[in-house]
Design a protein around this nucleic acid. Structure first.
Length: 206
DNA sequence: GTTGAGCGTT
């Protein structure tokens, strides 16, 4: 029953998006919905998936109808263990300029960045430190290596396949030999004629 | 079957 995220963004101007990080790769929107719906009206849940494999990318977007409910969900669900992993819940933004979407709704849905860049509140600072420590523990080399390896493997296999099919093709060796032979014969005879003319004419001219 | 930083489909 995953009708979430199937028909595009419904009405962003009236919703408050939450970014849920560190979820399991097999956690679906239906798994998150009952958990997040307990703290407010969830209008949409979207989990970005890989284009090729269709697997979850490990994070989700939960859209709430009201900002206070979204804030409450952040407070209650950030750091909670879901499916064996500690999830990270925070307000999401569409891009580098998410505040320009609609002055009012979306801007109010990003109180953390504004508060952090303007003035730090000691009430939330201890949580930032906690999250910072959590982030420092993570390493990103594994997934990146896998991605590069996959890309290189695919390219290498393609290259190998093409190269092998060409060198192993009997047409290639036969055609190459025949072609070179013909080429040598045809152009050789003509150039030999020219050379003969030159050689014959050379002593005459000298 | 694996993985683990990050900001999203029309």
């Amino acid at each position: 029953m995953s009708h979430f995220g199937r028909s595009g963004p419904p009405d962003i101007s009236d919703t408050y998006s939450l970014l849920v990080l560190n979820i399991t790769f097999r956690t679906t929107a239906d798994d998150l919905f009952p958990l997040f719906d307990k703290y407010g009206k969830v209008v949409d849940i979207f989990i970005p998936r890989d284009r090729r494999t269709g697997d979850s990318r490990g994070f989700a977007f939960v859209r709430y109808k009201y900002a206070d409910e979204a804030q409450k969900a952040v407070d209650r669900l950030d750091g909670r263990v879901v499916d064996g992993r500690e999830i990270t819940v925070q307000f999401a933004k569409y891009g580098p300029n998410a505040e320009r979407i609609h002055k009012g709704r979306i801007v109010e849905s990003v109180p953390r960045s504004r508060h952090r860049s303007r003035s730090r509140s000691p009430r939330r600072r201890y949580r930032d430190d906690y999250k910072d420590k959590d982030h420092k523990k993570r390493s990103r080399s594994r997934s990146l290596d896998r991605y590069e390896r996959d890309k290189n493997r695919g390219r290498d296999r393609d290259y190998r396949r093409r190269s092998r099919s060409r060198s192993a093709s009997p047409d290639y060796s036969r055609g190459r030999g025949r072609g070179r032979y013909d080429d040598e014969r045809r152009s050789g005879s003509r150039s030999a004629d020219r050379f003969t003319t030159l050689l014959i004419n050379a002593p005459l001219l000298t």
